[in-house]
Structure formats: C-alpha cells, structure tokens
C-alpha cells in the first residue's frame, strides 16, 4: 500500500512539474476562511503549521522550504516527505504553545483543526494571532458545513466531501502564489478518486455494508466508530457501501451488540502509530475480532473481510483519497461482487 501510494504521489509531482502554468496570484489577496476574512499583501515568506494535515498540504505544494515549524503530529509524515520534513523543526508533538508559534514569526499559520485556534482555541484564538500581525488559515475540511461548537469533535451538518480538501489545497496555493502546482495536485487527487470509484462501480455491488473501527478506550469496551457524515462516510457513500452506524457524530461510541446485529459485510480498522489505548494497535483489533464471542460471529470476521487503513486517511485530509483507493481495492479482493 505504502509503495503504491508513494508511486502515485511521485507521479503527481512529475505531473504538476510539467503542467501548464496557471494564473499568478494578484495581491492584495482577500479570502473568506472559516468565518474570517483574511488579506495578504504578498505571498507569505514562511509558515508555521498546527496540524499534520496542514503540514502535508504545504509539503505537497512543494513549499517544504517555507515551513519553519510544525506541530500536532498523529502519524509519521508521508514517506515521500520524510526528507523535507527532517529539516523542519517540530514546535511540539502535540499542541504547541502560542508563544512557540509566534516566536517563529511566520508569515502564515496554517491550521488543521478549528479547536486549536477557534473561539475556544487551545493554542490561541485567531484574533490573538491577527493582533500580532500573523494571518491564520484553517483547512476548510474542518469548517465547511461543520459546527465545531457542538459535540466533542464537532458535528457536520452535511456529508463531508473531498471538495473541501481540494478547496484547501487551492486556497493555500493561491496564498503562496503557486496556483499551477495547486491545480495540478487537485487534478491528481480528483483523478485518483474517480479511478477508485470507477473500479468499485465495475464490481456491480449490491448491499455491501461496513463499519469503521477507529479505536476503543479499553479493549472490550464499546468502540469508537465512524458516523455517517465524516470522511469514512464519504468513502462508503462514493463506493456504494452502507454504513451500519447511524449517528451524525464524527466518531460516536456504538456497542458491539449493535454492530454485530447489523452484521456488516466488512470491517475497516484503523492503523496508527499512537499507542494510548491497547486497541490503537491494529493487531490487537484483529485479535479482538477473532476471539470475541460476539464479534467473531460476524460475517465480516468469519470471511476475513477486514480492511486495515491508515488512521489519518479516516480524518478529512489529503490522505482520505488514499483511503478510498484502499477500500476500493479491498472490495475487489473480497470478491463481494455477485
């Protein structure tokens, strides 16, 4: 999986390197971003990031040399960016302090999650950054059609769409005046997604269902599973898979009893580097599924239809597209087509 993703990403680089030049950005540039109006007189010279997804978007745009500090890491950086990332200092593995970000005097702070810089922001509010003359940009994937004041992880009012990921890539490309690279990268994401959907459509699937298991606070306890509005729900929607979970929350807690009775055709489990709960380890998840007296009776487990997916792909990030590809491939491998 990693190798294929690397190849795809590498071909993407080649793609936008040769793509026809898009319009250069005209400054001053004014943008509406997650409820705030931001203005740029010129392209920022440097940027600090809060959130791995924001960091990886900048790397994808070839702006690695402009990133002067990163924070909030969930996983290892994508392998194609390992080299670039090694030269960038980490402000913090988790939440950075306001001052450590400001100390870098960045021309822009690019942010993944609203809860880091929103009205209750735990790093600081956006106003605080703006008062010291540092503009902020929050990836629209976390605020388009999403109310971050409701629920712990926020609540989406409509189904997430990769369009909001594309929007984030394009807007960052405009801010940094690399619109041709942005357009090329979006084109690549769109094509990969369309191809994956096409491959799934060709299988002519009927009534395939799934549950996405992110983790559990304790091994036997009710798990965190994907709700019906987030990135996993989008993947399932596009590939014609029914989500057995019916909750609008991003990651609701649903009992194994409910999941087992719904008896999904496949189970997608998250693979992550985090090891806070035993269930963070995908091997432990598989062990549970095979040994639990109820979970082991599900069709998905009996027929070994378990998909292992990068946890960060289950969040609304550029990795989501890789998630769609993994899921599409799994549908084919499992021979669910009739």
């Amino acid at each position: 999986m990693t190798a294929s993703r690397f190849l795809l990403a590498a071909s993407g680089f080649a793609f936008f390197a040769t793509a026809a030049a898009a319009e250069p950005t005209t400054y001053p540039l004014t943008l509406e971003n997650c409820g705030e109006t931001i203005t740029f007189d010129k392209a920022p010279v440097t940027s600090a990031t809060v959130g791995q997804a924001a960091t990886e978007v900048l790397y994808s745009l070839g702006l690695g040399d402009k990133v002067t500090g990163t924070s909030v890491w969930f996983n290892d950086v994508l392998p194609e960016f390992a080299e670039v990332n090694a030269k960038v200092p980490r402000l913090a593995d988790n939440d950075p302090s306001f001052e450590s970000v400001v100390a870098k005097k960045p021309g822009l702070v690019a942010v993944q999650f609203v809860w880091h810089v929103g009205p209750e922001g735990i790093v600081a509010t956006r106003t605080q950054f703006h008062e010291v003359g540092i503009p902020t940009y929050v990836l629209p994937a976390d605020c388009v059609a999403k109310d971050n004041s409701i629920g712990v992880d926020g609540t989406r009012s409509e189904l997430f769409s990769t369009a909001s990921i594309h929007q984030g890539v394009r807007e960052l490309a405009r801010i940094f005046d690399v619109q041709d690279r942005g357009a090329a990268f979006v084109a690549e994401l769109v094509k990969r997604e369309a191809d994956a959907i096409e491959r799934a459509k060709a299988l002519n699937l009927t009534d395939v269902s799934a549950a996405f298991w992110f983790s559990s606070a304790e091994m036997d306890i009710d798990p965190y599973v994907a709700g019906r509005k987030g990135a996993p729900a989008y993947m399932m929607d596009k590939l014609g898979i029914r989500n057995v979970v019916e909750s609008d929350e991003e990651w609701p807690v649903v009992g194994w009893e409910t999941i087992a009775k719904a008896n999904p055709s496949m189970i997608v489990i998250a693979k992550m580097d985090r090891r806070r709960f035993p269930a963070d380890d995908y091997l432990k998840k598989i062990e549970f599924l095979k040994s639990d007296p109820v979970a082991s009776q599900m069709d998905a487990v009996k027929n070994n239809r378990i998909v292992i997916m990068d946890a960060h792909a289950m969040d609304a990030t550029i990795r989501t597209i890789a998630g769609i590809e993994v899921l599409s491939a799994a549908l084919k491998d499992f021979g669910l087509a009739k």
Binding site: V72, F74, N94, D95, W115, V152, D153, S215, S216, A217, E218, M219, D220, I221, D222, Y224, W251, V253, G255, W256, R276, F277
Partner: peptide
C-alpha cells in the same frame, strides 16, 4: 489530544460495556 481526552472522560463517567 482531544480524542484521547474524550476516551478518558467517557471512562471516568463509568462504563459497563467492557
């Protein structure tokens, strides 16, 4: 991070599901 804290809160309030 927020996701962990939520797991902890959930447990702190009591949970019989396990």
């Amino acid at each position: 991070n927020a996701e962990q804290a939520r797991g902890i809160m959930f447990w702190l309030l009591g949970n019989l599901s396990g």
